[in-house]
Structure formats: structure tokens, C-alpha cells
Design a protein around this nucleic acid. Structure first.
Length: 470
RNA sequence: GGUCCCAUCGUCUAGCGGUCUAGGACGUGGCCCUCUCAAGGCUAAAACACGGGUUCGAUUCCCGUUGGGACCGCCA
């Protein structure tokens, strides 16, 4: 009987859900689903000055968009302050923690001095064995970190990482305003919530030995740790705002599909042979820490774009049609809330989906199908709506009038006949028609476009084009 | 500065001692297909950071150098 896997994603609501956080959440989620375990969402909002409810909402929205569903929570640490304080009290009584009366300014001063002298920046432990309170000072509580021996982190991804205890300092676990700090709450919560695997970013590896000592002081077993490699920007520095979009929801706005983002993110650090595109089911089935790499990965927007295109091409036209609606509204191609023939829109999308890398592009390319006010591109008109193409267009128009089967199959022979009669190649007719009906020189196959447009609108546009020449 | 982590094409990666004249993908160039644009097919250029070991044999194991990164907060 193996214990049930319990993992958690523990963001602090001091910003939106960003790419790095999403990747961490994803790997936790994947591991939980792979093991049939539980995924807990915990909001680490102990920093009351920077945490906001809006960001909690934003993080939840981001996770929902990515379909990373959690089984328990969201729990908020601010709801649990009493729990933390009772644990602090316990450590205090057992002599495993102590009051420190050093002021923020003093600490900062010593840090600067240590930096200038090239010494390790570490709390010097001067309040460790204080017998009496210092009058006029409100103390913090520090954890008494063992100063001898070593601490081993047995990491699922890194392997054995050994830290000298003498390098670790006595961290503050309770602030002077009586609120607990991260390194303490994270341990208490992971214990209380029975977390079996702590999966988080590499940036926490150095915190891990400190936390292990807290587990021990509290008398609990440590969970398993798995530290994921970081995601870097193109300049190899930690991904941040200056690398462009880092908020997950900004990818929604740019027209990315959530499954595509997930697929791209999972390949940053994880692999399964040469496979690039995975369904959720495959991801869950294949996921393992054995295939997680150690090296940090550079976020590459171009590949993400390609992955997105793969998902758009593979998506069902009906589903895409629904997803593109908000973008059509945003681009003012349709009025907000206006009813649209979704079956027809699906057919239109089908002709365009292998040409769009994002929903934004898809929406833009849908314009000439939906709006009759197309307007000819200057260069396109100049090159293709000419005296030379006029007889072709006229002939086609006249042949089309009597055509009843306005489909690819019905249209093709008509085009062929006109082209043959004039002794020209198909392009000599197709391009002028393309400009006439779309306003530009790029579009799906001309028969597909006309079929979606329908006979009436096609003829109207041909007339407009013809009269624009003469 | 101290501690820790990392190191295969520009980027994401495969490789878990011989199968490597190092594979795939993105991007880039060329060709094909073609009514345009895409998609697709073919193709080209492109990497084991360096130096020592270990071994019959190292991209693969060990050590060092170099180079990146993270952490060192009464932030998380």
C-alpha cells in the first residue's frame, strides 16, 4: 500500500499568474493526475502589503483558462495565522526559536558591512542567547538553525544536494507585527495539508535545507522535493516583464489556445523522446520526473507560435468558430452580442485555420467573409484588376449567374471553361477574382472562398470590381 | 563576496560507455507542389564549452577551469 500523492501549487498573489508559475502549477497537476493523487491550491498571502484579492482572482482565472483544476482549496494563509502562531509558540517554549531585538536598520547596516568586507551575509546570532528582553524594542522570532553538521536534500530531479549547516542562518519566522513568514508557513502548511511532494522552482532549492530543519524541529517527516529548472528570457536572465508578455492571460489575449500553451510549457524541461505535440491524456500518462531535465530553458515565443498553429490546424472548425467570436468582436468585425450563423462560420473557419497562427490572425482573416465592405488593397488592384483581366472577369460573372451548384465541384468547371476560352492559365483568372472578392492577394483556394461567400455576394463583389476597372 | 544549481545546433531537446560520420523540433536558406497565401514533402547550414583523469573505448562516469543562473529580506 503506497501513500496517496498530495501536491500543491502555492503562488503568492502579488501579481498575475505568469509563465513560470503556470509551468510549476502544470508539473504539479501532471504529477498528481499521473499518480491519481490530489492537487491542492494554496494562496501564500502572508505578505499583506503586496497581496491583493484581485491577484488571487487573476491567478484562479489563469489556472481555469489552462484547465489546471485543483482538488482542494484555494486555501489562504491569512486564514491560518492562529495555526502558525501556535507552532511558533511551541518552538519558543522548546527553545528551538528565540526572540531577536535587532532592528531592520541594524540588520541592513550589518548586511552592507558584510558585503563590503566580502563576508557571508548571514545573521550573526547575537540575540540567540539573550536572557532579557531589550526595552523599547518589539522583537521578531527567529528559528534556531543547527550550526553543525550537514543537511541533505534528496531531490527527485537534482539528486543529492548537500548543505553545510554552518552556512545557514537563523531565519525570522514571526515578524515584529506578529505575522509569520514564508519559510515557516510553507512548512506548517505542507505538514498540515499532508503534502507528499513539494514540486517548485529551482529558486527554492537554497531554502530547502532551512525548511528541512523546521520540519525536524516540529517533529515531522520531510516530504519529497523536486526542483524544476527555471525558465529564462532570451538573454538568459530570469524571465520577467522586460522579456515581453509573461502573464498567462496575455496569451489568451494574443489568441493562443490554452492547450497549446500547456503543450509548449511542458516541453520546457520535460520530454518524451522526439514527440512534440501531446494530448492531455498523453501528458498525464507519460509524465515522470525521470524525463525532466536539469538545465534552465529559454522561453522561445516563435516555437510557442508554431505549437499554437499546430493546435489551431488540428482543432475542430466548430470549436474554433466559438473561440474566435471574442476576437471578432474585439476587432470590430462583428458587433458585440450579435447573432451569427455558427454553422456557416464553422465552414469559413475551416478554410482559414491552416493559415492562422493565432485566434487574432484567424479573426482578422475572417473579415472579408463576414463584412461586405472589403475595399481593395492598392497594389492588388493595380496588378490584377486591369483592362487585361476585365474580359475574364466579365465572362466568369456571366457564367456564374446561371450556376446552381455554387460549390467547389460546381465552380471548378466554370473557371476551367473561361480560362480555356481565353487561352490563359488559371492564375490569370483566379488572382483577379481573389482581389475582387477578398480585396487582397492572399486567401484560401478560390473555389473555397466563393463557396463560403455564396453566389449572391460573389456576384455583387465581381460587379463592384468590374465597375472599378472601367 | 558566500552557498547552491546548471552546461549537446541560435532556441527547445533525444542521447542514460561502443548503435554518434550525434537524432528530432522551432527558426533560417534552397527545391518540389501550386490559382495566391498557407499547409505538406524533400533538402542544406548549424552543437557534444575547455582541460585533465577512469576505461580497451567517452557526448555519456569523476575532478578542475571557464561560462551561465538562483539564493543570501521583518518578499514569496
Amino acid at each position: 500500500m503506497t501513500e496517496q500523492v498530495r501536491v500543491r501549487f502555492a503562488p503568492s498573489p502579488t501579481g498575475h499568474l505568469h509563465i513560470g508559475g503556470a509551468r510549476t502549477a502544470l508539473f504539479n497537476w501532471l504529477y498528481a493526475r499521473n499518480k491519481g493523487g490530489r492537487f491542492v491550491l494554496r494562496i501564500e498571502d502572508t505578505d499583506r502589503t503586496r497581496s491583493t484579492d484581485d491577484y488571487i482572482e487573476a491567478i484562479i482565472q489563469g489556472m481555469q483558462w489552462l484547465s489546471l483544476d485543483w482538488d482542494e482549496g484555494p486555501f489562504r494563509q491569512t486564514d491560518r495565522f492562529d495555526v502558525y502562531r501556535s507552532y511558533v509558540e511551541r518552538l519558543l517554549q522548546e527553545g528551538k526559536a528565540y526572540h531577536c531585538y535587532c532592528s531592520v536598520e541594524e540588520l541592513e547596516q550589518r548586511r552592507q558591512l558584510a558585503l563590503a568586507q566580502g563576508k557571508p551575509q548571514k545573521y550573526d546570532g547575537r540575540c540567540r542567547d539573550l536572557k532579557e528582553p531589550v526595552p523599547g524594542r518589539v522583537p521578531v522570532v527567529r528559528f534556531r538553525t543547527p550550526q553543525h553538521g550537514e543537511t541533505v536534500v534528496d531531490d527527485l530531479i537534482r539528486g543529492r544536494v548537500i548543505f553545510e549547516n554552518s552556512q545557514l542562518d537563523d531565519l525570522i519566522i514571526l515578524r515584529s507585527d506578529n505575522t509569520p513568514t514564508y519559510n515557516f508557513t510553507v512548512v506548517v502548511d505542507d505538514v498540515d495539508m499532508k503534502i507528499t511532494h513539494v514540486i517548485r522552482g529551482d529558486d527554492h532549492l537554497n531554502n530547502t535545507p532551512k525548511q528541512i530543519h523546521i520540519y525536524k524541529a516540529l517533529g515531522y517527516e520531510t516530504p519529497r522535493f523536486a526542483h524544476l529548472p527555471m525558465i529564462l528570457g532570451a538573454d538568459k536572465a530570469r524571465l520577467s516583464k522586460r522579456h515581453g508578455a509573461t502573464s498567462v492571460m496575455s496569451y489568451y489575449e494574443m489568441g493562443y489556445l490554452p492547450d497549446a500553451l500547456v503543450n509548449y510549457l511542458v516541453r520546457l524541461g520535460w520530454s518524451h523522446g522526439d514527440q512534440e505535440i501531446f494530448s492531455r491524456e498523453e501528458l498525464i500518462r507519460y509524465f515522470s520526473f525521470e524525463n525532466v531535465g536539469n538545465a534552465a530553458a529559454v522561453f522561445n515565443p516563435e516555437k510557442l507560435l508554431w505549437v499554437n498553429q499546430q493546435y489551431i490546424m488540428a482543432a475542430s472548425p466548430e470549436r474554433l468558430a466559438e473561440r474566435v467570436i471574442p476576437f471578432l468582436e474585439k476587432e470590430k468585425i462583428i458587433e458585440e452580442g450579435k447573432e451569427l450563423d455558427m454553422v456557416w462560420l464553422g465552414r469559413a473557419v475551416k478554410t482559414l485555420q491552416e493559415r492562422a497562427k493565432t485566434l487574432v490572425e484567424l479573426a482578422a482573416s475572417l473579415r472579408y467573409y463576414i463584412s461586405d465592405d472589403i475595399g481593395f488593397q492598392e497594389k492588388a488592384k493595380e496588378k490584377f484588376l486591369t483592362e487585361k483581366s476585365l474580359p475574364l472577369l466579365r465572362d466568369l460573372r456571366n457564367s456564374l449567374v446561371s450556376l446552381t451548384d455554387f460549390s467547389h465541384a460546381g465552380l471548378e468547371p466554370v473557371f476551367k471553361a473561361v480560362v480555356e476560352a481565353h487561352g490563359v492559365k488559371l492564375g490569370a483568372l483566379a488572382q483577379p477574382v481573389r482581389v475582387a472578392v477578398t480585396g487582397g492577394t492572399e486567401s484560401p483556394g478560390i473555389y473555397e472562398v466563393l463557396e463560403v461567400l455564396g453566389k449572391e455576394r460573389t456576384l455583387k463583389r465581381l460587379d463592384t470590381a468590374i465597375s472599378s476597372i472601367t
